[in-house]
Computed example of a mutant assay.
Amino acid sequence: MSYDQTLRYFTWLSGALVIVLFGLPWLALTLFGLDQGTAPEVITRRAGILFLGFFLLAPALRRVQDSTTRRMISRALAVMMLVMAGLGMAEWGLGRAGPGLILASITELAFCLAFLRLMKHPD
């Protein structure tokens, strides 16, 4: 998968997460088997806004031509995805979240691997 295509998918994922986490926080909490309430919804909405930043940045990052910069972008996103996947699996393994978090972790791991591949072949 090319750099452009990987970031395009990442943009779509980020946009979907903005909609779900910010607009429908109860849905994310239900999918992940988490308790609902004011505090979890506040934190879920705030997480949605973080993905809004990625959603707005990713199209501009797709236009980056410099290989070194592409590698740095890929490295940062790979680390972020790996840590999110690891955290998700740990929370699930500790019984703090439902099996819906496994799907999220698998998706994050797939993006991590795609970004790691792009570190070696940024063009």
Rank of each mutant, 00 (worst) to 15 (best):
R63Y: 08
I49C: 06
K120F: 03
L57F: 14
P99M: 14
F54I: 10
T30S: 05
R62F: 00
L57G: 11
L101M: 07
L24Y: 10
T69I: 14
A16G: 15
I73P: 02
A60N: 10
L103D: 14
R117G: 09
G100W: 03
F51H: 10
L109A: 15
T44I: 04
L31P: 12
R46Y: 15
T44V: 09
L31F: 13
L21Y: 13
L21D: 10
R75K: 09
A104T: 15
D66A: 04
D66Y: 01
L31E: 12
T38V: 13
G95A: 03
A110N: 06
G53L: 09
M1K: 04
V64P: 03
A114D: 05
Y3T: 09
L17K: 09
G48R: 10
H121T: 15
P59E: 06
I19E: 03
S14E: 09
G98I: 01
G37D: 03
A58R: 02
E91Q: 14
G98N: 01
G100A: 02
L50R: 02
G86Q: 09
P122I: 07
G93V: 04
F51Q: 08
Q5K: 14
R62W: 00
F32C: 02
R70T: 11
L27H: 05
L118Q: 04
R71F: 03
M1H: 06
R96Y: 01
L21A: 13
A78T: 03
G86I: 12
C112D: 11
L77W: 02
A90L: 12
S14D: 09
R75Q: 10
A90C: 07
L7Y: 00
W26Y: 15
Q5L: 12
L29W: 04
M1G: 11
G95H: 02
A110E: 09
S14G: 12
R8N: 14
G95D: 02
G15H: 00
F111K: 04
L116D: 11
F51V: 12
L29G: 02
F22Y: 13
F10C: 03
R45H: 01
L118A: 02
E41L: 08
M81N: 12
I49P: 06
R96W: 00
G48V: 12
F111G: 04
L57P: 11
L77V: 06
Y9H: 09
T44K: 01
L103Q: 10
M80A: 15
